[in-house]
Protein backbone atom coordinates (compact mmCIF):
# COMPACT_ATOMS: atom_id res chain seq x y z
CA UNK A 1 0.00 0.00 0.00
CA UNK A 2 1.15 3.48 -0.76
CA UNK A 3 0.57 4.66 2.79
CA UNK A 4 2.81 1.98 4.16
CA UNK A 5 5.54 2.88 1.70
CA UNK A 6 5.41 6.54 2.73
CA UNK A 7 5.66 5.59 6.38
CA UNK A 8 8.55 3.32 5.48
CA UNK A 9 10.35 6.08 3.58
CA UNK A 10 9.94 8.53 6.42
CA UNK A 11 11.02 6.08 9.12
CA UNK A 12 13.96 4.79 7.09
CA UNK A 13 15.38 8.20 6.28
CA UNK A 14 14.84 9.49 9.81
CA UNK A 15 16.51 6.44 11.29
CA UNK A 16 19.50 6.70 8.97
CA UNK A 17 19.98 10.43 9.62
CA UNK A 18 19.71 10.00 13.38
CA UNK A 19 21.96 6.97 13.61
CA UNK A 20 24.78 7.93 11.26
CA UNK A 21 26.71 10.40 13.46
CA UNK A 22 26.60 7.83 16.25
CA UNK A 23 28.23 5.19 14.05
CA UNK A 24 30.95 7.59 12.98
CA UNK A 25 31.74 8.32 16.61
CA UNK A 26 31.88 4.62 17.47
CA UNK A 27 34.61 4.14 14.87
CA UNK A 28 36.53 7.14 16.18
CA UNK A 29 36.18 5.96 19.75
CA UNK A 30 37.50 2.50 18.89
CA UNK A 31 40.45 3.96 17.05
CA UNK A 32 41.21 6.29 19.93
CA UNK A 33 41.01 3.52 22.50
CA UNK A 34 43.38 1.37 20.46
CA UNK A 35 45.79 4.28 20.41
CA UNK A 36 45.52 4.59 24.18
CA UNK A 37 43.45 7.78 24.18
CA UNK A 38 40.03 8.40 25.65
CA UNK A 39 38.46 9.40 22.39
CA UNK A 40 35.44 11.59 21.79
CA UNK A 41 32.15 11.21 23.63
CA UNK A 42 29.79 8.92 21.74
CA UNK A 43 27.29 11.72 21.17
CA UNK A 44 29.99 14.12 20.03
CA UNK A 45 28.85 13.77 16.42
CA UNK A 46 25.52 15.45 17.22
CA UNK A 47 27.21 18.20 19.18
CA UNK A 48 29.56 18.83 16.25
CA UNK A 49 26.67 19.06 13.78
CA UNK A 50 24.79 21.42 16.08
CA UNK A 51 27.86 23.60 16.44
CA UNK A 52 28.48 23.72 12.71
CA UNK A 53 24.87 24.65 11.91
CA UNK A 54 25.22 27.70 14.13
CA UNK A 55 28.39 28.93 12.46
CA UNK A 56 28.74 31.36 9.62
CA UNK A 57 29.14 30.05 6.09
CA UNK A 58 32.02 31.60 4.20
CA UNK A 59 32.65 31.23 0.51
CA UNK A 60 35.91 31.72 -1.36
CA UNK A 61 35.88 34.67 -3.76
CA UNK A 62 36.26 32.32 -6.70
CA UNK A 63 33.50 30.00 -5.63
CA UNK A 64 30.57 29.70 -8.01
CA UNK A 65 27.14 28.18 -7.77
CA UNK A 66 28.51 24.71 -7.17
CA UNK A 67 29.75 25.70 -3.72
CA UNK A 68 26.30 26.94 -2.86
CA UNK A 69 24.17 24.08 -4.09
CA UNK A 70 26.51 21.08 -3.78
CA UNK A 71 26.02 20.51 -0.04
CA UNK A 72 22.26 20.47 -0.34
CA UNK A 73 22.36 18.46 -3.55
CA UNK A 74 24.71 15.85 -2.10
CA UNK A 75 22.60 15.35 1.01
CA UNK A 76 19.40 15.14 -0.97
CA UNK A 77 20.87 12.54 -3.31
CA UNK A 78 21.96 10.48 -0.35
CA UNK A 79 18.58 10.76 1.31
CA UNK A 80 16.98 9.48 -1.87
CA UNK A 81 19.47 6.61 -1.78
CA UNK A 82 18.47 6.06 1.83
CA UNK A 83 14.92 5.42 0.72
CA UNK A 84 16.18 2.65 -1.52
CA UNK A 85 18.00 0.70 1.19
CA UNK A 86 15.75 -0.80 3.87
CA UNK A 87 17.58 -0.63 7.17
CA UNK A 88 15.34 -2.56 9.55
CA UNK A 89 12.06 -2.99 7.73
CA UNK A 90 11.34 -4.24 4.24
CA UNK A 91 7.98 -2.94 3.02
CA UNK A 92 5.88 -4.88 0.58
CA UNK A 93 5.95 -2.23 -2.10
CA UNK A 94 8.82 -0.01 -3.09
CA UNK A 95 8.22 3.69 -3.12
CA UNK A 96 11.00 4.42 -5.57
CA UNK A 97 12.73 1.92 -7.76
CA UNK A 98 15.27 0.24 -5.51
CA UNK A 99 17.51 -0.87 -8.34
CA UNK A 100 20.99 -1.55 -6.97
CA UNK A 101 22.71 -0.09 -10.00
CA UNK A 102 20.73 3.15 -9.60
CA UNK A 103 21.86 3.17 -5.98
CA UNK A 104 25.47 2.79 -7.02
CA UNK A 105 25.28 5.66 -9.45
CA UNK A 106 23.48 7.89 -6.99
CA UNK A 107 26.50 7.48 -4.77
CA UNK A 108 28.78 8.24 -7.68
CA UNK A 109 26.78 11.40 -8.49
CA UNK A 110 27.22 12.59 -4.92
CA UNK A 111 30.90 11.97 -5.28
CA UNK A 112 31.00 13.90 -8.53
CA UNK A 113 29.40 16.90 -6.85
CA UNK A 114 31.96 16.87 -4.06
CA UNK A 115 34.79 16.57 -6.58
CA UNK A 116 33.47 19.60 -8.47
CA UNK A 117 33.20 21.43 -5.18
CA UNK A 118 36.84 20.77 -4.50
CA UNK A 119 37.78 22.35 -7.79
CA UNK A 120 35.35 25.20 -7.42
CA UNK A 121 37.18 27.04 -4.68
CA UNK A 122 40.28 27.33 -6.87
CA UNK A 123 42.56 26.01 -4.17
CA UNK A 124 45.37 23.64 -5.08
CA UNK A 125 44.66 21.21 -2.29
CA UNK A 126 41.07 21.00 -3.32
CA UNK A 127 42.04 20.20 -6.90
CA UNK A 128 44.50 17.58 -5.71
CA UNK A 129 41.90 15.95 -3.54
CA UNK A 130 39.39 15.96 -6.37
CA UNK A 131 41.73 14.32 -8.85
CA UNK A 132 42.72 11.64 -6.37
CA UNK A 133 39.14 10.98 -5.41
CA UNK A 134 38.03 10.62 -9.02
CA UNK A 135 40.88 8.27 -9.93
CA UNK A 136 40.12 6.06 -6.95
CA UNK A 137 36.48 6.15 -7.87
CA UNK A 138 37.25 5.10 -11.42
CA UNK A 139 39.29 2.13 -10.26
CA UNK A 140 36.84 0.94 -7.65
CA UNK A 141 33.87 1.14 -10.00
CA UNK A 142 34.45 -2.17 -11.80
CA UNK A 143 34.83 -3.86 -8.43
CA UNK A 144 31.61 -2.36 -7.18
CA UNK A 145 29.72 -3.29 -10.30
CA UNK A 146 31.00 -6.87 -10.19
CA UNK A 147 30.18 -7.19 -6.49
CA UNK A 148 26.68 -5.93 -7.04
CA UNK A 149 26.37 -8.14 -10.11
CA UNK A 150 27.34 -11.14 -8.00
CA UNK A 151 24.69 -10.15 -5.45
CA UNK A 152 22.09 -9.83 -8.18
CA UNK A 153 23.11 -13.18 -9.68
CA UNK A 154 22.86 -14.98 -6.37
CA UNK A 155 19.54 -13.55 -5.33
CA UNK A 156 18.01 -13.20 -8.75
CA UNK A 157 16.69 -9.68 -8.63
CA UNK A 158 17.93 -6.14 -9.16
CA UNK A 159 15.89 -4.58 -6.44
CA UNK A 160 17.60 -4.09 -3.11
CA UNK A 161 14.34 -4.83 -1.33
CA UNK A 162 14.12 -8.21 -3.04
CA UNK A 163 17.77 -8.94 -2.39
CA UNK A 164 17.29 -8.35 1.33
CA UNK A 165 14.11 -10.36 1.33
CA UNK A 166 15.85 -13.31 -0.30
CA UNK A 167 18.72 -12.95 2.15
CA UNK A 168 16.37 -13.42 5.08
CA UNK A 169 15.40 -16.82 3.71
CA UNK A 170 18.92 -18.02 3.00
CA UNK A 171 21.28 -18.96 5.74
CA UNK A 172 24.70 -17.63 4.71
CA UNK A 173 26.77 -20.55 5.84
CA UNK A 174 25.22 -22.76 3.22
CA UNK A 175 25.95 -20.34 0.49
CA UNK A 176 29.66 -19.76 0.08
CA UNK A 177 28.98 -17.00 -2.39
CA UNK A 178 27.45 -14.74 0.20
CA UNK A 179 30.27 -15.38 2.63
CA UNK A 180 32.81 -14.62 -0.06
CA UNK A 181 30.97 -11.45 -1.02
CA UNK A 182 31.36 -10.02 2.44
CA UNK A 183 35.06 -9.41 1.79
CA UNK A 184 34.74 -7.21 -1.28
CA UNK A 185 31.75 -5.47 0.31
CA UNK A 186 33.87 -4.67 3.33
CA UNK A 187 36.66 -3.36 1.12
CA UNK A 188 34.01 -1.30 -0.67
CA UNK A 189 32.96 0.29 2.62
CA UNK A 190 36.57 1.14 3.38
CA UNK A 191 37.08 2.72 -0.01
CA UNK A 192 33.82 4.61 -0.32
CA UNK A 193 34.10 6.15 3.14
CA UNK A 194 37.75 6.96 2.64
CA UNK A 195 39.26 5.07 5.55
CA UNK A 196 42.72 3.71 6.22
CA UNK A 197 44.34 2.04 4.24
CA UNK A 198 42.93 4.03 1.34
CA UNK A 199 42.80 7.46 2.92
CA UNK A 200 43.23 8.74 6.45
CA UNK A 201 40.06 10.59 7.55
CA UNK A 202 41.78 12.17 10.52
CA UNK A 203 44.76 13.60 8.76
CA UNK A 204 45.39 17.32 8.99
CA UNK A 205 48.20 17.30 6.43
CA UNK A 206 46.72 18.61 3.23
CA UNK A 207 49.18 16.78 1.02
CA UNK A 208 47.91 13.43 2.24
CA UNK A 209 44.22 14.28 2.00
CA UNK A 210 41.87 12.74 -0.47
CA UNK A 211 38.37 13.29 0.83
CA UNK A 212 39.07 15.99 3.36
CA UNK A 213 40.98 17.97 0.77
CA UNK A 214 37.86 18.63 -1.22
CA UNK A 215 36.06 19.94 1.86
CA UNK A 216 38.79 22.33 2.93
CA UNK A 217 36.94 25.45 1.82
CA UNK A 218 33.54 24.54 3.21
CA UNK A 219 32.38 25.97 6.50
CA UNK A 220 29.37 26.26 8.73
CA UNK A 221 26.15 24.76 7.45
CA UNK A 222 27.71 23.40 4.28
CA UNK A 223 30.32 21.50 6.23
CA UNK A 224 27.64 20.13 8.52
CA UNK A 225 25.66 18.89 5.54
CA UNK A 226 28.71 17.25 4.03
CA UNK A 227 29.62 15.54 7.28
CA UNK A 228 26.10 14.26 7.55
CA UNK A 229 26.02 12.96 3.99
CA UNK A 230 29.37 11.22 4.51
CA UNK A 231 28.01 9.51 7.61
CA UNK A 232 24.78 8.58 5.83
CA UNK A 233 26.78 7.00 3.01
CA UNK A 234 28.69 4.88 5.48
CA UNK A 235 25.52 3.74 7.20
CA UNK A 236 23.86 2.78 3.91
CA UNK A 237 26.82 0.69 2.81
CA UNK A 238 27.02 -0.91 6.23
CA UNK A 239 23.35 -1.72 5.97
CA UNK A 240 23.88 -3.51 2.66
CA UNK A 241 26.65 -5.61 4.14
CA UNK A 242 24.83 -6.39 7.39
CA UNK A 243 21.45 -7.15 5.92
CA UNK A 244 22.96 -9.70 3.55
CA UNK A 245 25.29 -11.42 5.97
CA UNK A 246 23.19 -11.22 9.13
CA UNK A 247 19.59 -10.60 8.16
CA UNK A 248 18.26 -11.74 11.52
CA UNK A 249 15.68 -9.41 12.96
CA UNK A 250 14.60 -7.49 9.89
CA UNK A 251 10.95 -6.62 10.10
CA UNK A 252 8.84 -7.81 7.23
CA UNK A 253 5.51 -6.47 8.40
CA UNK A 254 4.36 -3.21 9.84
CA UNK A 255 3.88 -3.77 13.53
CA UNK A 256 5.39 -1.59 16.23
CA UNK A 257 7.05 -4.29 18.28
CA UNK A 258 8.78 -5.94 15.33
CA UNK A 259 9.91 -2.55 13.98
CA UNK A 260 11.43 -1.51 17.27
CA UNK A 261 13.14 -4.87 17.60
CA UNK A 262 14.52 -4.50 14.08
CA UNK A 263 15.80 -1.04 14.83
CA UNK A 264 17.51 -2.05 18.03
CA UNK A 265 19.06 -5.10 16.41
CA UNK A 266 20.39 -3.01 13.56
CA UNK A 267 21.88 -0.62 16.06
CA UNK A 268 23.69 -3.47 17.74
CA UNK A 269 24.89 -5.05 14.49
CA UNK A 270 26.00 -1.68 13.18
CA UNK A 271 27.96 -0.99 16.34
CA UNK A 272 29.77 -4.31 16.06
CA UNK A 273 30.59 -3.62 12.44
CA UNK A 274 31.86 -0.17 13.35
CA UNK A 275 34.09 -1.72 15.97
CA UNK A 276 35.44 -4.08 13.34
CA UNK A 277 36.02 -1.18 10.95
CA UNK A 278 37.81 0.72 13.70
CA UNK A 279 40.03 -2.24 14.51
CA UNK A 280 40.74 -2.81 10.82
CA UNK A 281 41.73 0.83 10.42
CA UNK A 282 44.01 0.64 13.42
CA UNK A 283 45.71 -2.48 12.17
CA UNK A 284 46.94 -1.04 8.91
CA UNK A 285 48.94 1.92 7.78
CA UNK A 286 47.80 4.13 4.96
CA UNK A 287 48.94 2.67 1.67
CA UNK A 288 50.95 4.59 -0.85
CA UNK A 289 48.58 6.02 -3.39
CA UNK A 290 49.88 3.98 -6.31
CA UNK A 291 49.67 0.73 -4.34
CA UNK A 292 45.94 1.18 -3.83
CA UNK A 293 45.03 -0.49 -7.15
CA UNK A 294 46.58 -3.67 -5.70
CA UNK A 295 43.98 -3.64 -2.94
CA UNK A 296 41.22 -3.08 -5.46
CA UNK A 297 42.57 -5.87 -7.59
CA UNK A 298 42.23 -8.28 -4.71
CA UNK A 299 38.64 -7.17 -4.15
CA UNK A 300 37.99 -7.55 -7.88
CA UNK A 301 39.53 -11.00 -7.82
CA UNK A 302 37.26 -12.01 -4.95
CA UNK A 303 34.16 -10.75 -6.65
CA UNK A 304 34.91 -12.36 -10.02
CA UNK A 305 35.71 -15.59 -8.22
CA UNK A 306 32.33 -15.36 -6.53
CA UNK A 307 30.54 -15.11 -9.84
CA UNK A 308 32.57 -18.00 -11.23
CA UNK A 309 31.72 -20.19 -8.29
CA UNK A 310 28.06 -19.39 -8.66
CA UNK A 311 28.20 -20.34 -12.32
CA UNK A 312 30.30 -23.43 -11.72
CA UNK A 313 28.16 -24.70 -8.91
Amino acid sequence: MIGESFIFAFLNVAFVVVISPFFMMVVKKVKARVQGRQGPHLLQGYYNLAKLFRKETLYSEYAGFISRIAPYAALSILLVAAVMVPIFWIPEQELVTANIIVFLYLLVTGRLLIALLGLDAASTFGGMGSSREMSLSAIIEPVTVVVFAALVYVTGSFSIHDIFRTATTMFPAYNPTVLLLSVPLFILIIVETGRVPVDNPETHLELTMVHEGMLLDTSGRNLALFELSHAVKQTLLMAILLNIILPAGIALEMSAGVLILGGVLFLLKGTVLCVIIGLFESAYAKMRFFQIPNLFMIAFFFSILTIFIEVML
Binding site: P293, N294, M297, F300, F301, F308
Partner: peptide, 14 residues
Protein backbone atom coordinates in the same frame (compact mmCIF):
# COMPACT_ATOMS: atom_id res chain seq x y z
CA UNK B 1 52.93 -6.64 -11.58
CA UNK B 2 50.37 -8.06 -9.13
CA UNK B 3 47.25 -6.35 -10.52
CA UNK B 4 48.00 -7.61 -14.00
CA UNK B 5 48.87 -11.03 -12.65
CA UNK B 6 45.54 -11.24 -10.83
CA UNK B 7 43.73 -10.27 -14.02
CA UNK B 8 45.64 -12.94 -15.88
CA UNK B 9 44.76 -15.54 -13.27
CA UNK B 10 41.07 -14.66 -13.63
CA UNK B 11 41.43 -15.27 -17.36
CA UNK B 12 43.23 -18.53 -16.64
CA UNK B 13 40.42 -19.79 -14.41
CA UNK B 14 37.89 -18.88 -17.06
Amino acid sequence: RPPGALMLSILIIL
